[in-house]
């Protein structure tokens, strides 16, 4: 069903994945860290290029560390986005109109069922 052939990624999705990773970790990462976390057949140079592009777009900060750089996300735009997102979703009724939440809230019974389902 996926319209992305296996092994290839949609345009922009590698950048998203790198941004996701940088946000997901609490400490700054080197290009090598990013490469090993994302894994697959990703070349070091590709990771380097993406990080430089993201830095040029002012989406990530970097500072020298050893022979290379470490990278971490710029927070300004994300703080603003959070404020606006929070406001847009402030009214619970509005949230119903929002498309696609990745996951719905659970009650304790549902949570227990989920934990059981995930037990091997």
């Amino acid at each position: 069903m996926g319209n992305t052939p296996a092994g290839r990624r949609a345009r922009g999705s590698l950048e998203s994945e790198v941004m996701g990773l940088l946000w997901g970790r609490s400490e700054p990462l080197t290009a090598a860290d990013v490469q090993s976390a994302i894994g697959g057949d990703l070349a070091y140079n590709t990771v380097q290029t993406i990080l430089i592009r993201l830095h040029e777009k002012n989406l990530v900060n970097r500072r020298k560390a050893g022979r290379g750089h470490v990278y971490w996300p710029v927070e300004d735009a994300a703080t603003t986005a959070a404020k606006r997102m929070r406001a847009a979703l402030a009214d619970p009724v509005d949230r119903h109109a929002v498309l696609q939440q990745f996951a719905a809230s659970l009650d304790e019974d549902d949570a227990a069922t989920l934990r059981r389902l995930l037990q091997p």
Partner: peptide, 23 residues
């Protein structure tokens, strides 16, 4: 209002908020 939350870069806007949300 959700569109106005931020300018997407590579199809993504990250909001620095602890609530686990994705739309």
């Amino acid at each position: 209002r959700l569109r106005a939350a931020g300018t997407p870069q590579d199809g993504l806007v990250v909001a620095d908020w602890s609530a686990p949300l994705a739309v």
